[in-house]
């Protein structure tokens, strides 16, 4: 019995040590920059950031149903807005942390030209896009194809990723020749890490504003507030830019 209570006390103490921990739901496209930002943040602040990566629509369903996230870094601005209107967020905490850039990418060098002519040529087996119904990068891809008058022609070659990470994975494994992905996934330190790409000019689709917001569960969390503030710092903004995002 004494041993048991000692165990309980030590477990509680261990839980207490993690009081400055913040649980963050992060849009899949922001995975790489967030890992870097969180590491810096942990070093500077002493707080611990626990990151979960996934599709924004799935996070919405989980948050509304009581998921223990304190901070959301969404892939769009509509989901945080919806959560705000439904009272699941801390009022006044929402801001645009990044503006996404869409890119047409192939894992093969010299496959994609600088103007996306490869789309018109039709010389590719599959075109991987994120589910346009749920993923903002998928919706922007469809919008771009409409603008190019190519939607009907390439639609039969669509394969859909559940989120932007899977969309990239279909291309990087070679199962799809081409894919519309987030620039941050294939860019590092300001240049393309591999393959070939066409950076979609901003006028082809509505801007992809990605908003962050503190969730109701994080309203008393010092760590959540600190991480949100850190996202606005020059150091974090430089990291975000280096992955190909714009800033507002």
């Amino acid at each position: 019995m004494q041993r048991l209570s000692a165990l309980i006390v030590s477990l509680l103490a261990a839980a207490g040590l993690h009081a400055s921990e913040v649980r963050v739901a992060v849009a899949a496209n922001f995975t790489a920059p967030m890992q870097q930002i969180a590491a810096d943040f942990e070093k500077n602040s002493g707080h611990v950031a626990k990151l979960s990566f996934g599709a924004t629509g799935k996070f919405y369903a989980q948050i509304v149903n009581g998921a223990p996230f304190e901070l959301l870094l969404a892939a769009d601005d509509t989901t945080p807005d919806k959560l705000e209107k439904e009272g699941h967020t801390v009022a006044g905490s929402r801001f645009t942390y990044a503006v996404g850039t869409l890119i047409l990418w192939s894992s093969k060098p010299d496959f994609v030209d600088g103007k996306g002519e490869v789309l018109k040529s039709g010389k590719f087996n599959k075109l991987s896009i994120a589910n346009p119904k749920t993923a903002p990068y998928g919706a922007a891809a469809v919008e771009t194809l409409k603008k190019l008058n190519l939607l009907a022609a390439v639609q039969p070659k669509f394969v859909q990723g559940e989120n932007i990470s899977q969309t990239l994975q279909f291309v990087s494994t070679g199962n799809a020749d081409l894919g519309f992905v987030a620039m941050s996934q294939v860019f590092k330190d300001g240049k393309l890490s591999s393959g070939s790409a066409w950076i979609i000019p901003g006028e082809f689709h509505e801007p992809i504003y990605q908003d962050a917001v503190i969730l109701a569960k994080g309203k008393d969390s010092a760590a959540a507030a600190a991480l949100l503030a850190y996202l606005k710092s020059d150091k974090a903004r430089a990291v975000i830019k280096s992955f190909g995002y714009d800033l507002r």
Binding site: A61, N131, V159
Partner: peptide
């Protein structure tokens, strides 16, 4: 599967899609 309607979008995936799209 790649979630293609009529080719690989089976019922379980369709449900997952509905949930994600709210």
């Amino acid at each position: 599967g790649g979630n293609i309607p009529g080719v690989t979008r089976v019922a379980s995936v369709q449900i997952y899609d509905h949930v994600e799209a709210m």
